[in-house]
Computed example of a mutant assay.
Amino acid sequence: MVRSGGRSGGGIAAARRPEVRLPPLTDFEGGGLEADGDYDGVRFGSVDLADESGRGARFMDCALEGCALDRTELSRARFIDSVLTGVRGVGTDLSSASLRDVEVVDARLGGVQLHGAVLERVLVRGGKIDYLNLREARLKDVVFEGCVLAEPDFGGAQLTRVEFRDCVLKRVDFSAVRMESVDLRSVAELDIARGVERLAGAVISPAQLMELAPAFAAQIGVRVEA
Rank of each mutant, 00 (worst) to 15 (best):
L134V: 08
E211L: 11
S8N: 14
Q158M: 06
D101A: 02
P152C: 10
L25Y: 06
D61Y: 14
A15R: 01
V118R: 14
A107D: 13
G56E: 08
D153L: 01
A117S: 15
A218R: 12
P23Q: 00
D36V: 12
L94G: 01
V222Q: 15
R21A: 13
A63I: 14
L64F: 15
G45M: 11
R135P: 06
G31P: 09
L209F: 14
A50P: 01
R138P: 09
D51F: 03
S8Q: 08
V83C: 01
R7G: 03
A68D: 14
R43D: 07
A97N: 06
P18M: 11
K128D: 06
S82V: 03
R108I: 13
I80W: 11
D183R: 01
L184A: 00
A193T: 04
R78F: 07
F79W: 13
F28Q: 05
V222E: 15
S8E: 12
S75I: 04
E29D: 12
D40C: 05
L114I: 11
S175M: 09
V83P: 03
T85W: 14
L199Y: 12
V187F: 02
D38Y: 10
V196K: 12
D166H: 07
A35H: 06
I129Q: 06
V222A: 15
D48C: 00
G111P: 05
A13V: 08
G116C: 09
L123V: 10
G37S: 10
L22E: 08
L109S: 07
R58H: 09
D106R: 04
V142F: 04
L74H: 02
L69Y: 04
A68K: 13
F144N: 03
T160D: 15
K140W: 02
P206H: 04
C147E: 11
E103Y: 07
A15G: 05
R121M: 02
L33S: 08
V102R: 07
A57E: 04
S46R: 15
E180T: 13
L149V: 02
P214G: 05
E136M: 11
A193R: 13
R21M: 13
I80F: 12
C62P: 15
